[in-house]
Design a protein around this nucleic acid. Sequence first.
DNA 1: GACCGGCTCAATCAAAAGGTTGAGACGGAT
DNA 2: ATCCGTCTCAACCTTTTGATTGAGCCGGTC
Lengths: 210, 210
Amino acid sequence: MTGPIRLLLADDHPVVRAGLRAVLDTETDFEVVGEAATAEAAVRRAAVGGVDVVLMDLQFGPGIHGSEATAAISALPDGPRVLILTTYDTDADILAAVEAGAAGYLLKDAPPEELAAAVRTAAAGRSALAPAVAHRLMDRMRTPAQALTKRELEVLQLVGDGLSNQQISKKLFLSQATVKSHLVHIFAKLGVDSRTSAVAAATARRLIRR
Amino acid sequence: MTGPIRLLLADDHPVVRAGLRAVLDTETDFEVVGEAATAEAAVRRAAVGGVDVVLMDLQFGPGIHGSEATAAISALPDGPRVLILTTYDTDADILAAVEAGAAGYLLKDAPPEELAAAVRTAAAGRSALAPAVAHRLMDRMRTPAQALTKRELEVLQLVGDGLSNQQISKKLFLSQATVKSHLVHIFAKLGVDSRTSAVAAATARRLIRR
DNA sequence: GACCGGCTCAATCAAAAGGTTGAGACGGAT
DNA sequence: ATCCGTCTCAACCTTTTGATTGAGCCGGTC
């Protein structure tokens, strides 16, 4: 690679964009060539070309999610690499990002050196995972993903909506016994022991919508 | 006031601190005199003196919460003003911050001009609320009928986190009877009859953070 | 054809949550 | 001085939820 690594900063917070610019501009081999305040804008800018690495947040206000933008950018022929830079490290977030073709996953509390190193790694075509993130992925591999079944997610969503077992059973044309049975399995898979903590856990892992 | 407004930046993200520094240093009447990566460090630095305004995040990793640090700093004689700068705008967060003596409440997606204006307002001894935040407070005033008290929101937040009455009572140093009592009032105000539906209703109305 | 995972249901027991009533302490407001 | 709202707690009771065990049905797979 000749010339500096050309960067696009995609984050809805002006302060964060300024921070990234300040941190990365001190590196002589980096050049920030653009900023985007929405995921849509990031996709449009990336499609124009002249960008090597996109630093992408996952949480944007309204509009499309960062992982969707990542998928769109990754689908571009000869498009830039996408490096996720976010606050959260839930399984669902990480998996969605990797699934979408992200070249790396960093947490916003990462020190500047780690950030710069990850950008270079991504630009070179290799994968860059923050140590904490890599650790979570390893954990998940070791403990085979206890994925919830379709029916279980259906029940869990209704629990999250605040329905009682009675109400859920009527809505799904089940007996309360069956609803309870599903809940027992859900609790076991999520490692919790009450419906409210199941909702909390599922929300944190983005298993159900809120 | 003579001389520049002296600022302390308290945020656990190096990138955000760099961004704030970059944004605020362009203002000639501001001077960033310190940074803190934890709430505890912010309190220690504020106690030393020579600071006019603290820009404080609410969410820190481990350790004390930003609102606790705000209370500690506000308790200092001739201490600096504290300006909350965070991502969330739920009732629970806002009330805790105001209660703790915060001089203002801004959201991280605020444009730089709004940020600078708020800092000057706080330094002058007046209150600075982001338009979105002020709007929420107005709403709350208009409909006092169903407004939850601070304590009730506190309990409700923990319910949303998945804790049982037993766990909540220990965490808040209450008896279970008191927790139940709060819940009865919460249910009545929200028009629901179970903890899960209370969480659902509160989430929909953005009373608590998820 | 046998096996397995997912879905369904029942019965029973223990624990947690919810409803009701009543009451004391405390601070702010009238 | 009194009233009112908030916060605190208790006792009692009913309902819901969770834990356990066991079992039948169905569709896909080896």
